[in-house]
Design a protein around this nucleic acid. Sequence first.
DNA 1: TGCTCATTGTGCATCGTTGCCCATTGGGCA
DNA 2: TGCCCAATGGGCAACGATGCACAATGAGCA
Lengths: 205, 205
Amino acid sequence: MMNKQSLRDMKREATGNALADAAFALALEKGLDGFVVEDVVQRAGYSRRTFANHYSCKEEAIASAALIFNGADEIKEWIAGLNENVPPLEILYHLMKMQLTADHFVKLQQLVSLSKQYPSLEPYILSGLHRLQISAQETISNLSHGRYPEGYTHLLVGAVYGAVLPLLDGSLNVLLPGQTAPEMPEAVTLDHYLDDMFGYLRNGF
Amino acid sequence: MMNKQSLRDMKREATGNALADAAFALALEKGLDGFVVEDVVQRAGYSRRTFANHYSCKEEAIASAALIFNGADEIKEWIAGLNENVPPLEILYHLMKMQLTADHFVKLQQLVSLSKQYPSLEPYILSGLHRLQISAQETISNLSHGRYPEGYTHLLVGAVYGAVLPLLDGSLNVLLPGQTAPEMPEAVTLDHYLDDMFGYLRNGF
DNA sequence: TGCTCATTGTGCATCGTTGCCCATTGGGCA
DNA sequence: TGCCCAATGGGCAACGATGCACAATGAGCA
């Protein structure tokens, strides 16, 4: 149940994360055109050449920050220790609960907000979300070895990630733990919304 | 006046320092034979092979911890910005003041204490001190380009480092900033002792 | 004594990071 | 328009860190 990946892989991932974090922070501080790649690598403590080894441009690095989860190691361990009998929908439920923390949700919102201001970010964000969905899909597929109809798990994963989308673009008012006053009558908490959506899925729509 | 060494060199040094720190901490916690190299690299986050790239054994790593100064970067900058007209003795004085802080002095005392318990440490500690002396010697030599008689700067540096030795082996009772009660009548503060010794040197013995 | 096993030493290939190079791009300015 | 220069992209070699294999050591034990 220990670290499945080698020290080398862990450090490469740490490098990419550090660069993405630095790029994301700079984007929030100075806007997309308020800094250059040199600033990113200087803040993260790497060379410009190394940045190019990980990302093709600032936008890609910024969007990749959304793929960095706080409890990443714990999530990986949990996935590695998953039992084959756990229903796919419950895997997805716990995965969402672990990944979509309040902190991470704020980060996603900031990212989407940035992409409104700088449309060039959008394709990279979409690409990042897509990779998340693919990753979840593979997790599900690896555990349910043909025990479900073709396309069934894709449908599930697609539904879940589809349900998350309105959380991001501002079409829903989400009440975060720190916030107290729900001026908007339609405001819901993040946990509430997820539970509602998974309720629909568990009841077969 | 910026970082004179490359990013690559800085990181290599950081690796060696992290390994030395881990080895030193483990030696204090568990004794010299209470841990193995594997424990060191695991604590520092490196591989066993990397340890071998830096140190030939535990003892060497532990002793090297004494060469790690808190304000290392500031010291290097100060040396790099030194004026040629500064007398060698004053260079040595400031160098000692910057390197021999109370924290570092405690570390040296712990190291010497360890070497009493584990004599195999001693040669590595002596080697480390010698490297320090060589380093100071080179700093002095590089700045005083033949403006002093042959051997004169060596004499100075040797005298200074000779004066430091009794501080380490317990033959002098040194009163540290945190300590209040000087039960021993001969107790002196670190700064006081250094000032006295440099007083002798400035007066030509 | 001979065996086992943990620890260490070391050679080698691989990979990630860095430094250096130059070509290209694109915006600002004369 | 043509020029300059910051920023970028990418090839290449050097170097540090890693993984792996294997030999050597040495303590503990049958």
